[in-house]
Design a protein around this nucleic acid. Structure first.
Length: 655
DNA sequence: TAATTGATAAACAGCC
DNA sequence: TGGCTGTTTATCAATT
């Protein structure tokens, strides 16, 4: 029974689920040994193939057991994880099923079973059987889901582990057979006699996207599977249809377009996705490691079908990508957990406002569906969970806080927050401690921050170094990359005429020309019913939620699950509505000025309190229209008057 | 699509 | 001489 002479072995590391390196290295060798199964012209039904594979699995299991029994290779669970396992590849000798899967699972521990499955998967991937695409995908997902379930079950009792694993294995087999039978029943898989090797295109057509998707769902049984597939360009809801239609239209034009069970024709699907392809962008192929230049979609499709056809290499790459995604998800979960702990630490204090005391569920924010299921009412504002921060910008839409901004990598765009409704004072007041400790970039423009820093002082002026210090003191984020943001600060000070440099005996100090600061913002919110209406609608729960979700989608970390999202934003934005200026940092400060980090002054107060330590020698000489506030409070010399003169144009006023 | 705005980088000059 | 400060320009990206 045991074919000990099975010479071909695959070195695979159990922890490496894909065993890609092994596959690639072995692809020319004995991995094709079992290819006779599929390369023959004999009639092979899908059921036969499934039986074949099951028997292969059992064969491998028996081999595995035998090795353990003979002491030739008796690794412990840990050893399995750490050391390569020699797996016999000889699958030519198919034996009756002498050990049931259940028995096998009773004998083998879950790690052993996992290793076994991985080996079996590697075997199947090497065997170039017909029906390779769905089955390989199936195997990929199966092992993936099994590995996930294993990793979860490792946290449980051993009994639970084996039970769950056993159930999953049984389910896998049942689903495998059921799906093939269903497909046969529907006529989707029609293996004619002598059609041993089914063209891939036919298979793609045979299994419509919904079937494939269902297969994935059923087998994987994990919520992340679809995401994984989307990540790697195997989103069966789209890509499969893409591939199907592309293949059907380009490769096998003689094959009539398959009408999907739901009535949707694959042609329409093709048309829908002609314009874009997840694996195509910026004129190049996005297949991992490819980057081939393709002028248009047609060329890309040709390239895709020629260079990335269904073969061992592509399948292996697919699995590598799955592994990558899996690792990223694990990493994401870890980081999210860490962030959650940080948030909890920073905002669960008794002194914090009440709406901060809600638990932060970052994990739930990872998945929209899960988030909704865990208490995010649809179309309603999310309950306050935590002051996670820079959520204020989200009020106006997505992409204000990006993942890059969260990580402090790359440029950020915070125009909305600055322009419309960022109550910087209240935001800082409420999240002062958070920004001080969390390495999260504040969702404010440099200009807003500089202004706030200056206006926060008693005399409304700061030296550059003091501004620097304020940044580093108030924001942990600005305690690094000093060259970058300091340059930006200087740039903003020089660029914006709202910042006025005043010569002092001690040196130069910077003040804020509040009028100029307000002027630089388009006063669109003033007296514009349409805009006000839009703002109101924009604050609607539904749209807000959509924006929030969109931003969540953009942010790789769903850490913006903040309570102040609605509390602050609604309040602040409502405040905006009766205040002409869109700069809510001005308006909210009037209302919400009890924060420790805020001086609690309105912009008018700010303006009136602007006081220069020492009068400059030269008096202001420009004749620009000064507001009452500015003319009264800021009798300053303007070394930078040139910019004012040349920029004080009616166009700005007409905005 | 163009204009606007913000962020970033960099070069340069003046000053201490 | 090097660092800091301040100005200016350019580029990119997001938004309007």
């Amino acid at each position: 029974m045991m074919v000990e002479s099975a010479t071909e072995t695959i070195r695979t590391t159990p922890s490496n689920q894909n065993g890609v390196s092994s596959l690639s290295s072995q692809s020319d060798g004995g991995g094709r040994e079992g290819g006779s199964n599929g390369d023959t012209n004999g009639e092979i039904s899908p059921v036969d193939l499934l039986h074949l594979q099951q028997q292969q699995a059992l064969q491998a299991a028996r081999q595995f057991i035998l090795q353990q029994a003979t002491g030739l290779n008796s690794p412990s669970s840990n050893e399995i994880k750490q050391s390569p396992v020699q797996v016999p590849v000889s699958m030519a000798m198919m034996t009756p099923q002498m050990i049931t899967p259940q028995q096998m699972q009773q004998i083998l521990s879950p790690p052993q079973l996992q290793a076994l499955l991985q080996q079996q998967q590697a075997l199947m991937l090497q065997q170039s059987l017909p029906l390779t695409f769905p089955i390989r995908l199936f195997c990929c997902v199966t092992c993936f889901s099994l590995s996930l379930s294993l990793s979860r079950s490792q946290q449980q009792q051993l009994g639970n582990k084996q039970l769950a694993f056993q159930q999953q294995l049984i389910q896998m087999q049942q689903l495998q057979q059921q799906h093939i039978l269903n497909l046969q029943r529907q006529g989707l898989v029609n293996l004619q006699p002598g059609q041993g090797a089914v063209p891939i295109q036919s298979l793609h057509q045979a299994m419509c996207p919904t079937d494939l998707q269902q297969l994935w769902k059923d087998v994987a049984g994990v919520q992340s599977t679809e995401e994984v597939m989307k990540h790697e360009g195997l989103d069966l809801t789209t890509n499969s249809s893409n591939t199907t239609s592309y293949s059907a239209s380009k490769v096998s034009p003689q094959i009539p377009h398959h009408t999907l069970p739901n009535g949707q024709n694959s042609v329409s699907t093709h048309e829908e996705h002609t314009a874009s392809h997840p694996l195509y962008g910026h004129g190049e192929c996005k297949w991992p490691g490819c980057e081939a230049l393709c002028e248009d979609m047609g060329q890309f499709i040709k390239h895709l079908n020629s260079e990335h056809a269904l073969d061992d290499r592509s399948t292996a790459q697919c699995r590598v990508q799955m592994q990558v995604v899996q690792q990223l998800e694990i990493q994401l979960a870890k980081e999210s957990e860490r962030l959650q702990a940080m948030m909890a630490h920073l905002h669960m204090r008794p002194s914090e406002p009440k709406h901060f005391n809600q638990p932060l569920n970052l994990a739930s924010s990872m998945s929209l569906s899960k988030r909704e299921s865990e208490g995010f009412p649809e179309g309603l504002p999310h309950p306050p969970t935590s002051a996670a921060t820079p959520i204020t910008p989200m009020r106006q839409g997505p992409s204000v806080i990006s993942s890059s901004s969260l990580h402090g990598v790359g440029p950020i765009r915070r125009r909305n927050s600055d322009k419309f409704c960022t109550p910087i004072a209240s935001e800082l007041a409420q999240n002062c401690e958070f920004y001080k400790n969390a390495d999260v970039r504040p969702p404010f423009t440099y200009a807003s921050l500089i202004r706030h820093a200056i206006l926060e002082t008693s005399d409304r002026q700061l030296t550059l170094n003091e501004i620097y210090n304020w940044f580093t003191r108030m924001f942990a984020y600005f305690r690094r990359n000093t060259a970058t943001w300091k340059n930006a600060v200087r740039h903003n000070l020089s660029l914006h005429k709202c910042f006025v440099r005043v010569e002092n005996v001690k040196g130069a100090v910077w003040t804020v020309d509040e009028v100029e600061y307000q002027k630089r913002r388009p006063p669109k919110m003033t007296g514009s019913p349409t805009l006000v209406k839009n703002m109101i609608s924009g604050l609607g729960f539904g749209s807000l939620n959509a924006s929030y979700q969109a931003a969540l989608a953009e942010s790789s970390l769903g850490l913006l699950n903040s309570p102040t999202l609605m509390n602050n934003s609604t309040g602040a934005s409502l405040n905006m509505l009766h205040i002409g200026h869109d700069d809510v940092s001005s308006t909210v400060e009037q209302v919400n000025s009890n924060g420790s980090c805020s001086p609690g002054l309105s912009p008018q107060q700010y303006g009136h309190h602007v006081h220069v330590k020492e009068e400059p020698a030269e008096m202001e000489e420009d004749s620009r229209p000064m507001s009452l506030m500015a003319s009264v409070t800021q009798n300053l010399s303007m070394p930078g008057d040139e910019r004012d003169m040349e920029e004080e144009l009616p166009t700005e006023e007409l905005e």
